[in-house]
Simulated assay, not measured.
Amino acid sequence: MKVESQFFEDYELDYTRKTLGRTITETDIVMHAGQTGDFFPHHMDAEWCKEQSFERRIAHGTLIFSVAIGQTASEINPEAISKGYDRLRFINPVFIGDTIHTTVTISEKEDHKNPGYGQVTEHVEVFNQDDKIVLACDHLLVVKRKESK
């Protein structure tokens, strides 16, 4: 895990980083169902899924979100605080055996109500092994300035 101080002024628009991949397993899905209580047949019932348009079990969107954000946590900035996530979308299903990777792009920088900080938006996109997008969202960060305005 890389720990590096990065201040608001250090963030560059359009800077992109890409994570390594991670394969989603049946164990991931079963454990996530147990942790969340989401035992919907889309995730747990292979026979029911055969009758649906996707024809096989799909991973929980919240599982893919959790794994993707975990993938991005290889870089820790002690000068930034996560404010949350906006515009979260589950775009395409993820199946058992799919390998996902995450791309983070600095998409916005703006002033914050506290003059000692700025707000940075990281656009997060998750892709499967075929480079098909499966999830997108915006991560909002409140980041300390080098010098107060």
Rank of each mutant, 00 (worst) to 15 (best):
residue 3 V to F: 02
residue 4 E to T: 07
residue 7 F to N: 01
residue 8 F to C: 01
residue 8 F to P: 01
residue 10 D to H: 06
residue 22 R to S: 08
residue 24 I to F: 05
residue 25 T to M: 12
residue 25 T to I: 09
residue 28 D to K: 11
residue 29 I to D: 04
residue 30 V to Q: 13
residue 31 M to Y: 13
residue 35 Q to A: 14
residue 35 Q to C: 09
residue 37 G to M: 10
residue 40 F to D: 12
residue 44 M to S: 15
residue 46 A to R: 15
residue 48 W to D: 07
residue 49 C to Q: 10
residue 49 C to N: 13
residue 51 E to T: 15
residue 53 S to G: 04
residue 55 E to Y: 14
residue 55 E to M: 14
residue 58 I to F: 10
residue 61 G to H: 12
residue 61 G to M: 13
residue 61 G to A: 13
residue 63 L to Y: 14
residue 66 S to D: 09
residue 67 V to G: 10
residue 73 A to C: 15
residue 76 I to D: 03
residue 77 N to Y: 05
residue 85 Y to Q: 06
residue 85 Y to D: 02
residue 86 D to R: 14
residue 88 L to K: 02
residue 88 L to I: 15
residue 95 F to M: 09
residue 95 F to R: 08
residue 97 G to K: 04
residue 97 G to V: 05
residue 100 I to S: 03
residue 101 H to W: 07
residue 101 H to A: 00
residue 103 T to Q: 12
residue 103 T to H: 04
residue 104 V to N: 03
residue 104 V to P: 02
residue 107 S to P: 04
residue 115 P to K: 01
residue 115 P to Y: 01
residue 118 G to R: 04
residue 121 T to P: 03
residue 122 E to M: 12
residue 125 E to V: 01
residue 125 E to M: 02
residue 126 V to S: 02
residue 126 V to C: 06
residue 128 N to R: 05
residue 130 D to S: 11
residue 130 D to H: 13
residue 131 D to C: 06
residue 138 D to I: 02
residue 140 L to D: 02
residue 140 L to K: 14
residue 143 V to I: 07
residue 144 K to P: 12
residue 145 R to N: 04
residue 146 K to R: 15
residue 146 K to F: 07
residue 149 K to N: 08
